[in-house]
């Protein structure tokens, strides 16, 4: 498996490596160039890249569409906040433990919940998010109840922004790499046909559980970084269904089941909504809605497959197929 990961990273080549280097340079330079407002905008964008890419592992690659992915993000945020607030943990450790917390939640719910498929899985994830939200409001002594937790600012915006940026890069590379491993191939097979997958020696239960845990881990870390930035969390924010809706919307926008889709989606979506918000302060939501409807009609599979088709039409296909042969 490690060999496959190494091989896939090597196959990124000059273009892929250059793109990563350019991203890192821009990431490091941006805080010196742009205003703090833009930095926090970027941070929100990176956060959505993290959660969309993670959602894409269970929902895009494996085919189990989750309608409650906010729960992992929210649990990560809460674990971090409680550890810092109650137990005075150093905040970077608390952020990492936020990821452990959400992965742990994914582990305990995975076995029963992955017995369900299709709409039933989607609904039970939704119910899970709502249940955790109620539980967080209820256990006042641990979680601060419905009033939430206030933290004093500990980390600077720039540090948190950089953490989120590198996390996004890491998650995208992980998603890219797993599609080149046995694990990723198993997930894609499960998406297409579970019975066939099982007959080909794939332990589908185990693979789905692994996928959900991986899919729950990164949003938890992102939630932890988020809470250190805004210094406040309450159940209504942490388990807000509109975050799940945004995840699904953005990933669909970019292209479900692709690697670049969950990156393009948040980038395009953030840029678009920011532009509309600045240009049409009163109508931006309506216009955004209209654009989304048009996009779904025009490119039902998202931007990414559309761009691939466009590239093929222009004739770049030749270039890509030659590169692929060379890399084999």
């Amino acid at each position: 498996m490690i060999k496959d990961v190494a091989r896939s990273l090597w196959a990124l080549g000059w273009m892929g490596g250059g793109a990563i280097a350019a991203f890192v340079v821009l990431l490091l330079v941006a805080p010196w160039v742009v205003s703090p407002y833009v930095v926090s905008l970027f941070m929100a964008m990176f956060m959505y890249i993290v959660v969309c890419s993670s959602w894409n592992i269970i929902s895009g690659f494996t085919g189990y569409v989750s309608f409650g992915h906010v729960v992992f993000w929210g649990v990560g945020a809460y674990v971090t906040a409680v550890l810092v607030w109650k137990f005075n943990y150093p905040w970077p450790l608390a952020v990492m433990l936020g990821g452990v917390g959400s992965a742990f939640l994914a582990t305990i719910v995975s076995y029963p919940i992955l017995k369900l498929t299709g709409i039933y899985f989607a609904i039970s994830m939704l119910a899970l998010a709502e249940a955790i939200k109620i539980l967080t409001s209820h256990f006042r002594s641990v979680t601060g109840g419905g009033g939430g937790i206030y933290l004093r600012p500990m980390a600077s915006l720039n540090i948190l922004y950089l953490m989120m940026g590198f996390l996004a890069l890491a998650v995208v590379l992980v998603c890219y790499s797993i599609t080149h491993t046995k694990f990723g191939r198993s997930l894609l097979t499960i998406r297409e046909d579970e019975t066939a997958a099982e007959s080909l020696g794939i332990n589908i239960t185990r693979r789905k559980i692994q996928a959900l845990i991986l899919s729950g881990l990164f949003p938890g870390i992102a939630g932890g970084i988020y809470v250190m930035n805004v210094c406040f969390i309450d159940p209504a924010t942490a388990f807000d269904i509109s975050i799940t809706v945004n995840i699904i919307l953005m990933t669909t926008f970019g292209g479900i089941g692709t690697i670049i889709g969950p990156v393009l989606g948040p980038v395009a979506f953030t840029a678009l909504s920011e532009f509309l918000w600045a240009s049409f302060p009163f109508l931006h939501r309506a216009i955004l809605g209209a654009i989304l409807i048009a996009m779904v009609m025009g490119m039902p599979n998202g931007i990414m497959p559309f761009m691939v088709r466009f590239a093929q039409w222009v004739g770049i296909r030749e270039f890509f197929s030659r590169r692929r042969e060379a890399s084999q």
């Binding site: 060999k3 496959d4 491993t181 046995k182 191939r185 097979t189 997958a197 080909l200 020696g201 794939i202």
Partner: peptide
């Protein structure tokens, strides 16, 4: 080829080998 590779992955953990 990818279809057959999935079958071959039953006996190896390396996609390249499969």
């Amino acid at each position: 080829l990818e279809n057959v590779t999935v079958g071959a992955l039953c006996r190896t953990s390396e996609v390249y080998e499969a």
